[in-house]
């Protein structure tokens, strides 16, 4: 035994695993170039939003009444709108707004999904039954109906949009986490932990939660895109973030639609931005899911096989 152990230790030393994130990044670029492209779009959005104050030329709602409806050109890169506001600057601030809404609502939705999914999936029984019937009822309403009702009750505004979107997506997403928890719960190692006297809450947080991180991460990225799209849609319908806040959806509908023939860039530019960002985040999330799913990995069967050591890294 001593010999084999030493030999195996040698293998590990020469093949020191890279850090998890670095490894993921390398595999993203190598195996999923399209996903990497989506990642770049996402990164660009992130940088634009965070450093909006330095990237934008004008302040948020600065107007240049003389230069109304200037087409894109050297002075105003993406043109101006009916009040003479610089579209480029508004797009940049719009990115920030989208990010704030997207991250807040997504985080809220993930927290709701994880809390509901972990508890119902793990404890099961009557508690699960009750909560799941509530989720069923909730999901039987079309999203838009719930959104319109909620916004008309709560009134328009950024925080209202965040709250409603977070709740909406959170409850629907709990199903995904619940499913993952149920499959993890059936593993022998969960039983093994219970057999050493670990209390339920500790099994849940220390053993189950880390094992469902992959679906949680994927849910997070797909939810980001969904929230950006939903926020744009709500603002387009006039139920989202009220003007003059530079929401992409709002720019598309309020300014863009009214002056579509006079100044088509008012509608085209936010439209392109929404499309590109949603597409980018979606393919990025897709690639992440593929990379994080152990079944899609090279050494996916590494937990089986009799007494033979296998490595997942190639």
């Amino acid at each position: 035994m001593a010999d084999t152990t030493v030999a195996q230790a040698g293998v590990i030393k020469t093949r020191r695993p890279r850090g998890f994130l670095l490894d993921l990044l390398v595999r993203l670029v190598r195996e999923k170039p399209l996903g990497a492209f989506g990642g770049v779009i996402f990164l660009a959005l992130l940088i634009t939003g965070v450093f909006a104050d330095f990237i934008a030329i004008d302040k948020v709602n600065e107007i240049h009444p003389i230069d109304r409806f200037t087409p894109p050109g050297s002075e105003y890169w993406l043109g101006t709108d009916q009040l003479g506001r610089d579209i480029y600057s508004r797009m940049v601030y719009g990115a920030r707004l989208s990010l704030i809404v997207a991250f807040s609502a997504t985080t809220l939705s993930i927290v709701i999904s994880v809390v509901l999914g972990l508890t119902t999936g793990f404890f099961g029984g009557r508690f699960d039954m009750l909560v799941q019937r509530f989720v069923d009822a909730w999901m039987s309403f079309p999203d838009l109906v719930i959104l319109i009702v909620a916004v008309s009750v709560l009134g328009p505004g950024m925080w209202q949009v965040i709250f409603v979107l977070g709740l909406l997506l959170g409850i629907a997403g709990s199903r995904i986490i619940r499913g993952a928890v149920i499959s993890v719960r059936e593993n022998v190692y969960v039983q093994a932990t219970e057999s050493i006297g670990t209390p339920a809450w500790r099994v849940l947080l220390k053993h189950i939660l880390p094992n469902v991180m992959a679906p949680i991460i994927v849910l997070f990225t797909t939810r980001l895109a969904a929230v950006i799209l939903a926020e744009s849609g709500l603002s387009f319908l006039g139920l989202g973030i009220p003007p003059p806040a530079p929401s992409w959806g709002g720019m598309l509908s309020i300014d863009g639609r009214s002056y579509m023939f006079q100044a088509p860039w008012l509608a085209v530019i936010p439209g392109i931005a929404i499309t590109v960002v949603v597409y980018g985040i979606n393919i990025f999330g897709d690639a992440l899911r593929d990379l994080l799913d152990p079944r899609m990995r090279g050494g996916g069967m590494s937990y089986k096989g009799g007494g033979v050591k296998r490595r997942s890294a190639k």
């Binding site: 190692y189 057999s195 050493i196 006297g197 670990t198």
Partner: peptide, 25 residues
Amino acid sequence: QVQDLRGNKIAMIFQEPMTSLNPVL
């Protein structure tokens, strides 16, 4: 009381070493 017994006074070793350890810890 049972939780206090498990892993403390009585320990159990399971049949499949491949699946009885948590892969992420």
